[in-house]
């Protein structure tokens, strides 16, 4: 089972607490609202791989969406293994303020969205967040991935980790 991880390596044991969604949802929501890009973590045949992606989340935070050209390594890896993580943080401008840095790791399963009404719906969500990516997202050689988020791990104050599992009713 995934037990979550602290922001940085250290001797201290991670402080993992199950949090009531009401408390942890707000900082998670803030991070995904404030930040435009996430590190997408994928894997293939045992090899981990990370790449920056522009993302958008559904209002209930149960789904995330991003796009990638079909000629990329991440596309190929995603085609073979749908387990992904998205790391979103607020380091920029705070590099010397360790205790102020917050990060959220969202884990889940990704699925490429076929062209059609569902594609339009997810594409519009991503484009409304990143209007300058309109032609990129709509290009025939661009794949749109929807991630069904299973769990969020929110990290603050260096070692404080809280977990939240979004549900349809949260």
């Amino acid at each position: 089972m995934d037990t979550g991880e602290p922001l940085f390596d250290g001797d201290a044991s991670p402080d993992l607490r199950d949090a009531s969604h009401a408390a942890v949802r707000a900082p998670i929501q803030s991070l995904v609202n404030e930040q435009a890009y996430a590190v997408l973590c994928v894997q293939g045949e045992g090899q981990p791989y990370g790449a920056l992606v522009a993302f958008a989340f559904s209002e209930d935070l149960r789904f995330a969406v991003f796009a990638t050209p079909i000629t990329t390594r991440k596309y190929r890896l995603l085609s073979e293994c749908d387990h992904v993580a998205l790391v979103i943080d607020n380091r920029s401008g705070l590099s010397s303020e360790l205790m102020e840095v917050e990060a959220v790791t969202a884990t889940g399963r990704s699925q490429v969205v076929a062209r059609g009404p569902e594609f339009d719906q997810w594409a519009n969500l991503l484009i409304s967040r990143h209007p300058y990516l309109k032609s990129f997202v709509r290009a025939e050689t661009c794949a749109l991935f929807c991630v069904h988020i299973v769990r969020f791990l929110h990290v603050a104050r260096f070692q404080e980790v809280r977990q939240w599992i979004p549900t349809a009713h949260s």
Binding site: G44, E45, G46, Q47, P69, T71, R76, A139, T141
Partner: peptide, 18 residues
């Protein structure tokens, strides 16, 4: 990729660090 304006060099089947 003439839709996106990118040229990928090398085999489409990427070398994985295996």
């Amino acid at each position: 990729d003439g839709h996106l304006g990118i040229v990928t060099v090398g085999a489409a089947d990427f070398d994985l660090e295996i």
